[in-house]
């Protein structure tokens, strides 16, 4: 389970989010810019410390304001993929993939490279790669650390439409093969509908609906739980 109960304020913006969903498949997180997706991303990854609340993944507490728990990002085992990929520019693709791959077995290493079609790029520097190649390598880099959860922040929005579709297929395939739960952040409902088993919609810092991604199912309104700020773990 992914369990979040967060209260955070940044200037005029207020985040008030309660979410409990199974940690499986690809969870879509959509909303316009300014809806709080990025703040939520940053809180889960551990780059931003929320004012109050708790975050837990499969019973493991990352953050609990009342118990003064705040696991550093390096200890959370959460992979991140940014819109621009942000591969380390001074390393080859191989170096990038190996950066977090400390205990990874050869079979998993090869599987990720094969699924993401990275074999021919291993010796290239990031500056030489196309946008799509860069994103594939960035997803590979995050997976090689064997994260318990992978956060993807608009990973295809900088790509042209054809490449976008292919990269989305790759993400789906990688999820299927590695079974890594993912949170996929996007402002595009089509992308998310196509990819995600569950879709969470945010608006003005709150979650307004959660729907099952299966075609035809209707979104049900999300009621913020009354007994907020209680994380199991």
């Amino acid at each position: 389970m992914i369990e979040l109960h967060l209260r955070h304020r940044q200037g005029d913006f207020e985040l008030e989010t309660d979410l409990v969903v199974p940690a499986e498949g690809i969870i879509g997180l959509i909303g316009r810019s300014g809806s709080g997706k990025s703040t939520l991303f940053s809180c889960i990854a551990g780059h931003t410390r929320p004012r109050r609340g708790c975050i837990s993944l499969n019973g493991r507490l990352f953050f609990h304001s009342a118990h003064r728990i705040n696991l550093p990002p390096a200890a959370r085992h959460i992979g991140v993929v940014f819109q621009e990929g942000l591969l380390f520019p001074h390393m080859t693709v191989r170096g990038n993939l190996a950066y977090g791959a400390r205990n990874v077995g050869t079979s998993f290493w090869n599987e990720v490279i094969e699924t993401l079609d990275l074999a021919s790029l291993l010796d290239a520097r990031p500056a030489r790669l196309s946008g799509g190649e860069r994103q594939r390598a960035a997803i590979g880099r995050a997976l090689m650390a064997e994260p318990e959860l992978l956060l993807l922040d608009e990973p295809v929005s900088a790509l042209d439409p054809g490449l976008k579709a292919r990269t989305l297929d790759l993400i789906a395939r990688v999820q299927e093969r590695t079974q890594t739960p993912m949170i996929y952040i996007s402002h595009s409902p089509e992308e998310v509908r196509r990819l995600c088993s569950r879709v969470v919609t945010m608006q003005a810092g709150r979650i307004i609906s959660i729907s099952d991604g299966a075609a035809g199912s209707k979104a049900r309104p999300h009621l913020a739980s009354a007994q907020a700020l209680r994380c199991t773990g």
Binding site: P73, F82, R141
Partner: peptide, 22 residues
């Protein structure tokens, strides 16, 4: 970009390792 360090942290790197390698 501070997100290079964020990415390295999420890959389990210590602050020392991030400083010297990134």
């Amino acid at each position: 970009d501070p997100r290079y360090a964020h990415a390295a942290r999420s890959l389990g790197a210590s602050e020392w390792r991030i400083f010297f390698t990134v």
